[in-house]
Design a protein around this nucleic acid. Structure first.
Lengths: 211, 211
DNA sequence: AAGTGTGAACAAGTTCACAGCC
DNA sequence: GGCTGTGAACTTGTTCACACTT
């Protein structure tokens, strides 16, 4: 079934899923692509086409069963199982990440935390003990994780990523401003607020000029 | 000059800028699109075409002057001035954002911080006093900011965004998991790690299936 | 010889529009 | 009558390839 689906499509599915999960909670039984699109700022055709890559989930003249479609997306995205996450780098940012309630609620379990600072190692953060990052490789081989979240200083980011990849981690969320490299087959996402700010200032400059 | 440049192009410029700034620090005089592309994982043609929207900055047979191109990009992106930023919501995440050193270093000054929690209001965080969010509108009219960073609970995110927009803020960086709405002419970026995780699990599921 | 700048060719992604079904 | 699913038309974005400059 997963033949050749564009990445842009995959990236939109979590958006659809989140809205549907909300509608399900609100008790909605049926929803049209029209309505989903209006809520998300996407065209109805786009939603129908995206979903059609995975099957025929709708009923003509009616729309989509909210319960059914939510369930399908959960399964497609793999959100019907829990995923093990390690956070590496427990500075201010890493701590904010580690205690962000949105992860556990969505099936992502932070099962391990690592730092290089001896003052932090073995301390307790939200009920978990911080491990020494030099144990990372050995730990992962005993107790693998699915996803690594990297929030270390930029200088060591590539090293940490290499260790993760080498130990078999296939998905990395990088909060570092460094553009790290991973081999094919490893999923990588960058979160860098500065890049967002810098593209917004481009537009701000023109807004200003208009006055 | 700013006629009709695709947004994807604008979004890549900060990436180019960051690499060039680094090369400049390292003392490099000249660089080719070839080399930039290799470093960034982008085709050389892409880089040349992107830059060509803004002018002819290179020299045939030589490449680009690092100093010149850095300077041009700084000017195009508006990074030759400082930008005033307000952070709204000083929970764990907001605090991590407010004290993230990467902002000030890139010309973004966090000039104001807001929260609704009376226990936090008037306390000092990194040398700045947290203001009551109910003062936000009045404050902005006296002392405008260019960019608002929103890290409040999802329930009040749209309200805060509306206040910002209403008070003339044209760029908003939203850390909230809610997809807020803004009128045309306001730049909006979302940072939502959960959406990234959820698209990565799609791929992880197939990796697993391969074994 | 090396490398830019760019129209033209190509690829990817989006929207249209309508047949088909509920 | 209303709404899905989907080829076809279109739009947007990327890469090619080469004339031109240093």
């Amino acid at each position: 079934m997963p033949i050749d689906i564009p990445d842009v499509v995959i990236d939109r599915l979590p958006l659809y899923y989140r809205l549907l999960a909300r509608l399900e909670l609100e008790g909605r039984a049926v929803v049209s692509s029209q309505e989903l699109g209006a809520e998300l700022g996407v065209t109805p055709a786009q939603i129908r086409k995206d979903l059609s890559y995975f099957g025929r989930f709708g009923k003509q003249g009616r729309g989509y069963s909210v319960a059914r479609l939510t369930e399908e997306l959960r399964s497609i995205l793999g959100l019907d199982t829990r995923w093990q996450v390690a956070v590496i780098g427990i500075g201010r940012l890493g701590r904010a990440i580690a205690s962000y309630p949105g992860f556990e609620g969505q099936g992502f379990d932070i099962v391990a935390m690592y730092d290089a600072n001896p003052k932090l190692v073995n301390t307790d953060i939200d009920g978990r003990i911080v491990r020494n990052v030099n144990q990372l490789d050995a730990d992962l081989r005993k107790q693998p994780v699915d996803i690594g979240i990297v929030a270390v200083p930029a200088e060591v980011a590539q090293d940490v990523v290499d260790t993760l990849v080498h130990a078999g981690v296939h998905a990395i969320l990088n909060y570092t401003p460094l553009r790290v490299q991973v081999p094919d087959g490893v999923e990588l996402r960058h979160i860098n607020p500065v890049l967002f700010l810098q593209s917004m200032t481009y537009h701000l400059k023109r807004v200003r000029a208009d006055r």
